[in-house]
């Protein structure tokens, strides 16, 4: 672990810890979020993702550790809104406000002058496709529209860093595609994106770097492509009776584990042609023989599910 803060990082977390009573929600967490990448923040329910984001944003005080945004604690930045934009949940909107009034409030609070407010509000409404709903009250918006309004407020001041907690919730397929494109474009402009999501298929399509936590502790912090390739475990076989084959492979120093669905086995450190030759030699019938290439969901489950639970 690099104990020194990374000055080039958009977000740099070191030793972040938070306890609620006797429960430790975040436990000595350290990672960097670099600009120019879309970083996914993954973990099971209750892993500490939201608590971590809140500590980075200064809404929750950590018991230990530090979190820097653009090289300094967020409270040290004189103009917070120019540094970071965030979307923490659609419920954090006053239902009685109109779409335009919410953005007007956010723009005034952020210090935009009247001309800037008019320009930026029009721009973000167009960006998130809410122009036609500008005079509608927030209580009358769908969940997806509230998500887009929250994002509009987050980008109102064109911040350097974007922190999003479950931004894909409530979006229809078109909205998800839009959000994916937006986040990639935002990061491609040299800025920093950190977003959490349960939608692992979307995470795989959107993020190019992932930070995975479990029970408040770091489990993985690496490029998404490396994560999947490192997780390749061997060869998957399925058949009516694999016992002879698995015993032979185990004797050769290649142990096997059952597949998650229980209908086959994954033989570690094996090559498909070796397994095929062995199965022919032993007369073992195979219904399936392939390289184990787990997707993000499979990798995530392997990393975040305990062996005991499996």
């Amino acid at each position: 672990m690099n104990v020194l803060q990374n000055d080039d990082a958009g977000v740099s977390v070191r030793g972040l810890t938070k306890r609620f009573g006797t429960a430790t929600a975040v436990d000595d967490l350290s990672f960097d979020v670099m600009p120019g990448h879309v970083t996914g923040f993954l973990g099971p329910n209750g892993a500490g993702k939201s608590t971590t984001l809140q500590m980075i944003l200064g809404l929750t005080t950590p018991d230990a550790g530090t979190a820097l945004v653009a090289g300094a604690p967020l409270s040290d930045h004189p103009n917070l809104a120019a540094v970071v934009g965030s979307l923490l949940g659609t419920e954090r909107l006053l239902p009685g406000l109109t779409v335009h009034a919410h953005l007007e409030w956010a723009a005034r609070l952020s210090g935009l002058n009247p001309d800037e407010r008019t320009t930026r509000i029009a721009a973000v409404l167009a960006e998130v496709d809410l122009e036609s709903a500008a005079t509608r009250r927030i209580s009358a918006l769908s969940l997806g529209m509230r998500q887009r309004l929250g994002l509009a407020a987050a980008i109102l001041t064109d911040p350097q860093v974007l922190l999003l907690d479950e931004p894909l919730n409530g979006l229809d397929p078109e909205g998800i595609t839009w959000m994916r494109t937006f986040l990639k474009r935002f990061a491609a402009s040299g800025r920093t994106v950190l977003f959490s999501s349960h939608l692992l298929t979307e995470m795989a399509l959107t993020a190019d770097h992932v930070v995975i936590i479990r029970a408040g502790r770091l489990v993985a912090d690496l490029p998404l492509a490396d994560l999947v390739s490192h997780a390749q475990a061997g060869v998957v076989v399925r058949g009516p009776d694999l016992s002879a084959l698995l015993a032979s492979q185990a004797a050769a120093g290649r142990p096997s584990t059952p597949t998650p669905d229980g209908t086959g086995a994954v033989i570690a450190d094996a090559e498909p042609r070796e397994i095929f030759r062995d199965s022919v030699r032993l007369g073992v019938d195979l219904d399936e023989l392939r390289l184990d290439e787990p997707g993000l969901e499979e990798v995530f489950l392997r990393l975040t599910t305990s062996r005991k639970a499996r």
């Binding site: 944003l57 200064g58 809404l59 409270s75 930045h77 004189p78 917070l80 809104a81 970071v84 965030s86 923490l88 949940g89 419920e91 954090r92 909107l93 006053l94 239902p95 956010a106 609070l109 952020s110 407020a153």
Partner: peptide, 16 residues
């Protein structure tokens, strides 16, 4: 109402 909805955090995120 700011606390009931959590909207207070939107203000706190924009003020030093």
């Amino acid at each position: 109402i700011e606390f009931r909805t959590g909207a207070i955090t939107e203000a706190l995120l924009r003020l030093p």
